[in-house]
Design a protein around this nucleic acid. Structure first.
Length: 256
DNA sequence: GTTCTCGGCCG
DNA sequence: CGGCCGAGAAC
């Protein structure tokens, strides 16, 4: 059989594509296409590939069988943005196994543009580099007043931050504190400690540690952790209930 | 146990 | 009809 693993130009380097012809049975002559990651993991469908690659790669116009990007396969009236209202309200249970996109990520989609005085330079849009882009001091202030809304346009109550967290910098109110901390958690995998230097409190515009949020140094206590565990537990419970109710409703609907 | 292969469901 | 994945066959 053709068991040649060939390079696949549409995928990151190291990926291989293989086409296996069925040699017997009713489906003899049909072929199956497989992909192999650089580490040798085998993939036998687009959903499986998509799950593995996560949200970093859009396989929307990727043709699994040929292994090429097919611009024609774009923007069908189907293919909605993942988990929009429709697919959540009506429709089947969410069997989408792809990782959910952080909704807050939209804030960071457009990092500050770095202009370099060289005619041949192109602006890079690599997300990894985005965190290293220059930023305005106290840029978090711009997040002030951002709220989240549910589908009925009801303002969602903001999260309660643990007591003891205090903002720092020109905006002493707590209005940007949550945003600043949330942003910091999204933008770096390094520990978030807040501004540990006491100098930063006196003159933040000079001593601010820009890798940390506009938040005074804090420590996490066992009590904080217990509270958080409780919240997670409760959230999971209500999710479980919601899924339960949803499932029952669907069964009832289908047996009418 | 893992990998290969074809059947068959479902859209 | 073809993509996807279950599961038996093969190793």
């Amino acid at each position: 059989m053709e068991k040649k693993r060939t390079d696949c130009p549409a995928l990151p380097p190291g990926w291989k594509k293989e086409e296996v012809i069925r040699k017997s049975g009713l489906s003899a002559g049909k072929s199956d296409v497989y992909y192999y990651s650089p580490k040798g993991k085998k993939f036998r469908s687009k959903p499986q590939l998509s799950r593995y690659l996560g949200n970093t790669v859009d396989l929307g116009c990727f043709d699994f069988r040929t292994g090429k990007m097919m611009p024609s396969k774009m923007q069908k009236s189907k293919q909605r943005l993942r988990n929009d209202n429709l697919s959540l309200s009506k429709g089947k249970p969410d069997l989408n196994t792809a990782l959910p996109i952080r909704q807050t990520a939209s804030i960071f989609k457009q990092p500050v543009t770095k202009v370099v005085n060289h005619p041949n330079n192109k602006v890079k849009s690599d997300l990894q580099r985005a965190t290293e882009q220059p930023r305005q001091l106290f840029w978090e202030k711009r997040l002030k007043g951002l709220r989240s809304w549910d589908v009925s346009e009801e303002v969602l109550r903001t999260m309660d931050l643990p007591t003891g967290l205090q903002s720092i910098g020109p905006d002493s109110s707590d209005e940007t504190l949550l945003s600043a901390i949330a942003s910091a958690l999204h933008m770096s995998s390094a520990p978030i400690t807040g501004q540990t230097s006491s100098a930063a409190e006196k003159n933040p515009s000079i001593w601010l540690n820009t890798t940390q949020p506009l938040c005074r140094a804090f420590s996490v206590t066992d009590e904080h952790i217990r509270e958080q565990e409780l919240k997670v537990q409760q959230a999971r419970r209500s999710l479980e209930e919601a899924l339960m109710v949803d499932g029952l409703a669907r069964v009832a609907e289908s047996t009418v």
